[in-house]
Computed example of a mutant assay.
Amino acid sequence: MTEVVREFVGLPSPLIGRAGAGGHPCQGVYHRPAGAAPTTAFIATHYNIDFAEHYLASYLAERGYGFLGWNTRFRGAEAYFLLDHALAEIGVGVRWLRERAGVERVVLLGNSGGGSLMAAYQSQAVEPNVTPVAGMRPVPAIEDLPAGDLFVALAAHSGRPEVLTAWMDPSITDEADALSVDPALDPFDSGNGPPYSAEFQARYRAAQRARNERITDWVLGRLAALDGTRARDQLFNLHRTWADLRMIDPSIEPSDRRPNRCYQGDPLKANYGVFGIGSLCTLRTWLSMWSLRTSQCVAAPHLRRITVPSLVIHATADECVYDSDARAVHGALAAPDKRLELVKDDHYLRGSRPQVADLIDAWVRER
C-alpha cells in the first residue's frame, strides 16, 4: 500500500479573521502519497459537514492524487450559511492547491449536498452570477475565483432548496408547533398510505412547495419588520424535514435502497426528532440556502455553466438521493464530455469505496 501523508491546512478567510482561540476560518486536511508531489488533486467541501477526513481521501491519495478535504467557516454552523461567503472560502482552498501544493489540475468533487455547492463554485468561477442575499454587501473575493479542471458529482443531491422541499412534511399546520398536523396530508397516517395514490402524491408535492413559499413570505416579512430596529437578523426553528414519500414507499422510484429508511433511520422517528436539515436558520440563511424563490443553491443553473469534463456517480441503494436526482444532475451539465456511472451501494459507499476510487482514477487518467 502507498503511504499516505496527511497535512493539516489552516488558512485565513478574505471575509473574517481568526477565532479568538486561534483557529483559522478555513481548515482542512491535505492527503497525498509520500514522495513526489501529485500534479492532480481533488477538493471536496460541503455546506455544513466536515469533509477534512473524507472517506475517499486516502483511497485517492493511494492512487497518486492529492485530496484536500476542505471546510469553510460554516462547517457545523449551517444555521449561518451564506453562499457567496462560502464560495470565497472554497477559493482559498483551490488557490492553496495551485500555489502552495504545486498542483496543475484541480478536480472539484461535489459529494452529497456538496454537489450543488461545488457546482456553484465552478459556475461562479467561469461566469460570475452569485449575488449577495438581501441586506448584505457584495463579496469582491468571488469575482475572480480559480476554476476547476474537472468536475465529479458523487451521490449528489440536486440542490438545497429542492432537497429540503422534497423532504418537508407539509402536514404541519403551525410552524411553532412540531406536533401540529393536517390528517389529510399526514404521510404517517395509514389511511393515506403507503402505497400512496397518484392523487395523494400530487397534493403532497404541491403542499410541500406551498410550505416552502409560506416560510419565505414570513422571512421576508420579518426582515422588513426588523428594518430600523436593533436587530438585523434572527434565528428560527424548522420542524419535520424527514418526510419524502419515497423514504416511506419503495414503490415510488424503485431502487436498491432499504424501504422505510432515511439517513437518520426510521423516517417517522426522524421526522419528529430534533436532527434535521434546516432545523435552525437565520432569516438570511433561509433566503441564501433553503428558499425555492430566492436561493442560489439550486444546482441546475450552475450545472448549465459547467463545460469541463464531468463524471456523475449514483449509488443505487442511496436512501435519499434517487435515480431521478442523478439523471437530472447529468442532464443539466453543459459539459460535452460527461458520463453517468451507477454503483450498487448506499449513500456513503460503505461497501465499494476502493471500487469507486478505481472508477474515478480511471476516468481522470483518460483525461
Rank of each mutant, 00 (worst) to 15 (best):
G113F: 03
S190I: 13
Q296K: 08
E162C: 01
T229H: 09
V5D: 03
K269P: 00
L292M: 07
A119Y: 13
R257I: 01
R209Q: 13
D50S: 03
T241Y: 00
W286I: 03
G114T: 05
S251V: 01
R32V: 03
R284D: 02
G28H: 06
N271F: 06
E104K: 15
R367W: 07
E213D: 11
S171P: 01
V107G: 04
P38I: 10
T131I: 12
H347S: 00
T294A: 04
A141T: 12
Y59W: 15
A134Q: 15
R367S: 01
L268D: 03
G276I: 06
L11S: 05
Y55V: 09
L164V: 02
S291M: 04
A119P: 08
L280F: 08
G278V: 10
W290Q: 04
G64P: 07
I215N: 08
G66R: 13
D325E: 07
V9H: 08
L185E: 05
D318Q: 02
R258T: 05
L108M: 14
F236G: 04
R63W: 12
R246T: 01
A155Y: 02
L15N: 13
R18L: 02
F151L: 08
I306F: 11
Y121L: 13
G273S: 12
D244T: 01
A52Y: 10
T307N: 09
F151Y: 15
I248N: 01
R353W: 11
C26R: 11
R100A: 02
A315H: 08
A326Q: 08
S255A: 04
V139A: 08
S58H: 07
Q355I: 04
A328Y: 06
P336H: 12
L340H: 13
R18D: 02
S288P: 03
W96M: 03
A299I: 05
A299G: 02
D337L: 08
D169E: 04
A231Y: 15
V92Q: 09
V356E: 11
A120W: 13
S295G: 02
G331L: 08
A79W: 15
A134N: 07
A224W: 14
I252A: 01
R304D: 02
E162H: 06
P354I: 12
L108Q: 12
A61S: 11
N212I: 02
C281Y: 12
N129T: 15
E53P: 00
A88D: 10
R203D: 03
I252G: 00
T307S: 14
V364Q: 02
V9R: 14
L60M: 15
T229M: 03
